[in-house]
Amino acid sequence: MSLSTHTTISGFLLPSIHSAPPFFTEQPNPTTQSIATEQWIRLILSYARHRKLFVLRVEDAETTDGDWEEILRNDRINRKVLPGHLSNFMKVMVERNLAGYEPPRQMRSVLVYWRLPEEWAEVLYDWVVSSGQLSTILTFYDITDPPIESPLTNIPIPLLRKAIAILGKTGRSQLIAIADGEGVRFLPRSK
């Protein structure tokens, strides 16, 4: 089989390297493995953005019909990423702040930062401003499940907390205790 791009059922364009059998196995040469790891990380991040996926688990390497199957398997060449190999990609992503172990203190599941927490902070603040909710107290539910879908719909709470903390450091957000738990008030930019 020659190397060729392929469009998945979800409409994602897989790069031609995805049709190369060695791409799915750990390479003995460190330089070759480093290049393959870079390509896998780019592929994971772009696919996560395309599908709006936030969580990647080691188990996803063995799951059929899962969210990640389109990129972790290639049935056309009878190849799949093994769990240990995927775990290595996740480790490198965490080291580069492109993912974070979630829950913390384990190494089998990560939040994928297809947008960095700093970028999410700006998306969050822009959404609050554009929806006219400055100085309004919002619950996390208000943000993650708004009446009209937004770029923040379904954002995981740990990632939302990071974005809010970043805005807090610049004086643009303030966590507030409310009856049902926590809320956040977004403040105008200081002059």
Score class of each variant (00 low, 15 high):
Ile164Ser: 00
Asp142Trp: 07
Gly181Lys: 12
Asp180Thr: 15
Ala48Gln: 06
Pro21Tyr: 02
Glu119Asp: 12
Ser131Val: 04
Thr31Pro: 04
Thr136Phe: 08
Ser87Ile: 01
Pro117Ser: 10
Tyr101Phe: 14
Lys80Asp: 03
His6Ile: 01
Val129Lys: 15
Asp142Leu: 09
Val58Thr: 15
Leu159Trp: 01
Arg115Glu: 08
Leu116Ser: 11
Asp142Val: 04
Ser131Arg: 15
Ile178Arg: 06
Met93Pro: 11
Thr8Ile: 01
Glu118Asn: 09
Pro151Phe: 07
Val129Cys: 12
Leu98Val: 03
Glu62Leu: 12
Ile176Ser: 03
Leu82Ala: 10
Tyr47Pro: 00
Thr31Glu: 14
Leu14Lys: 07
Glu62Asp: 10
Phe186Glu: 06
Pro104Asn: 07
Trp114Leu: 01
Val123Tyr: 01
Leu72Ala: 05
Lys162Ala: 13
Ser46Asp: 15
Asn97Trp: 09
Asn88Cys: 06
Asn74Lys: 07
Pro147Asp: 12
Arg105Met: 07
Met93Gln: 08
Leu160Arg: 15
Arg79Val: 03
Gly171Phe: 02
Leu53Val: 00
Val81Thr: 03
Thr63Asp: 08
Glu118Cys: 04
Ile166Ser: 03
Leu124Gln: 01
Leu82Phe: 05
Ser16Phe: 01
Lys52Phe: 14
Ser34Phe: 07
Pro146His: 02
Glu69Thr: 12
Gly84Gln: 11
Arg185Ala: 10
Glu95Phe: 09
Lys80Leu: 10
Pro188Gly: 11
Thr64Arg: 12
Trp40His: 04
Asp65Thr: 05
Ser2Ile: 09
Asn78Phe: 06
Thr31Gly: 09
Tyr141Met: 08
Asp126Pro: 02
Ser34His: 13
Asp142Arg: 08
Ile41Val: 14
Ser34Val: 06
Leu159Phe: 01
Asp60Thr: 01
Ile9Ala: 14
Leu167Arg: 01
Leu159Asn: 06
Val129His: 08
Leu82Glu: 12
Ser173Pro: 09
His6Asp: 00
Pro104Glu: 10
Tyr101Leu: 11
Ser2Pro: 15
Ser190Asn: 12
Met107Cys: 10
Leu134Asp: 06
Gly132Thr: 06
Glu38Trp: 03
Leu152His: 11
Leu175Val: 12
His50Tyr: 15
Asn97Gln: 14
Val129Met: 07
Ser150His: 05
Ile178Gln: 07
Gly168Asn: 08
Thr5Phe: 00
Thr136Ala: 12
Pro147Thr: 09
Thr170Val: 15
Arg76Leu: 02
Arg185Leu: 06
Leu53Glu: 00
Lys191Trp: 10
Ala165Arg: 10
Met1Arg: 09
Arg79Phe: 01
Lys80Tyr: 07
Ile77Ala: 11
Lys191Val: 03
Pro21His: 08
Ile44Gln: 00
Trp114Cys: 00
Glu62Lys: 03
Ser4Trp: 00
Leu187Thr: 10
Pro28Ser: 13
Asp180Arg: 12
Val184Met: 07
Leu138Ala: 02
Lys169Val: 11
Arg96Pro: 03
Leu124Ser: 04
Pro83Thr: 05
Met90Pro: 03
Ile17Lys: 00
Asn154Gln: 13
Pro146Ser: 10
Ala48Arg: 08
Ile44Ala: 00
Ala163Thr: 05
Ser190Glu: 13
Ala179Ile: 08
Arg161Asp: 10
Phe12Leu: 04
Val81Gly: 03
Ile155Asp: 00
Ala121Gln: 06
Trp120Val: 14
